[in-house]
Amino acid sequence: MKQYKIAVLPGDGIGNEITIETLKILKYIQTYYSSFQFEFQIFDAGAERFLKTGVTMPEDTFNHCKAADAILMGAIGLFEARHPDGREVNGDVIFRLRFDLDLYAGIRPVKLFEGVPGPLRDTSKGIDYVVVRENIEGLYASRAGGCNVRDELATDTIIITRTGTTKIVEYAFKLAQKRNGRPIDGKSMVTCVDKANVLSSYAYFRKVYDEVAQKYPHIAKDYAYVDAMALYQVMSPHNYDVLVAENMFADILSDLSSATIGGLGLAPSADIGDNHGLFQPAHGSAPTIAGKNIANPIATILSGAMMLDWLGERHGDAELLQAAKSIEQAISNVLNEGVCLTVDIGGSAGTNQVGDAVIESLHQILK
């Protein structure tokens, strides 16, 4: 039996509540399989810790995350926890892990589950695509290196490299190879999202995309300017399979895409590199609803499933891969039944009730 060390960072606000439900499900599902076992190590990092101690993430915690087989995060950040220059301190955790562990691929699945009241008028053609975000370059590479002169002039610099762009576009095409194509017709396609008509940095991103795409002639190439893409995600999301974009553009588009499937409470994410993986919901810490047992834990639970899938592929463990599919199927069943939904998607169930419902569905699937 393989033992996997999971560094757990519950974080701030609702982070602890949604993490508890996810760990409950992961602990439950491991009892059904013989090939793997989890060792969860919980660490205090985040904005609440910063307000108390002045340190967002101790160096020892970072080292444990680096040594772990995977990292599971709840939610990091509070509006009032900021550095003197105005930046929120959540970057001390999220950006530190992404940049220092080379988690270059931000993966944001966008899937509309049956039973979820999405805001779009007609979703009959389906929504099931993935936003692939370049995570460690782009405009956010200037996060600590921008210039502010006499409170009169501020600048940040976008960074687009051949190496970084090649890696993220390769990841996008390899992901498309494993998927079933876009909902409308099953066509495998990678859409390059940029602003190549205006900025040379994005024209260069597209140039590298074209070079990488030549290695995947069986997967269709596609292009969209980022402003038009925001329209297409609302008007015709069924036309897309995999989107690949620079750091900031993909950050914005992934939040927009989440709105089309019922909100951020249903939006999982993964930050993946060649040697490390961080898994967390795409939403924030929502401190105004913390402690009220109304937060939606599904995004975090789905992120946990993504963690199992990543570990399964990385270690060639078929049972981990199956466990990941079982969790997603259990969530699909719960949402489709429509009797255990949190308030953000039209129900009245508590956070812990949703976790219990997912476990009950898992029991039915696995028995």
Rank of each mutant, 00 (worst) to 15 (best):
S326I: 04
F249P: 01
T56G: 08
E170H: 15
A220Q: 10
K24E: 13
K125P: 05
G74H: 03
E170C: 11
G316E: 09
R108N: 10
W310L: 04
G284D: 08
T19A: 08
T165I: 13
L153W: 10
D210V: 10
F95G: 02
D44L: 05
G265Q: 03
A228W: 07
T351V: 07
I168N: 01
N16C: 10
I184F: 07
R150K: 14
V226R: 03
A105N: 05
V208K: 07
P117D: 14
I14H: 02
A70H: 02
Y202V: 01
Y240G: 04
P84L: 14
V354W: 00
V130D: 01
D344E: 12
C65V: 02
S236I: 14
K52R: 15
T166P: 05
I168Q: 04
P10V: 06
D156W: 06
I219M: 08
I327R: 02
I184T: 08
P217H: 13
S348P: 03
V208A: 08
P281V: 03
T61L: 05
D227W: 11
E152W: 11
S258C: 12
N333L: 13
F279L: 10
G145F: 12
H83N: 14
K215H: 15
E88K: 09
D255H: 05
Y232D: 08
G146E: 11
V343P: 03
A47D: 07
I136W: 01
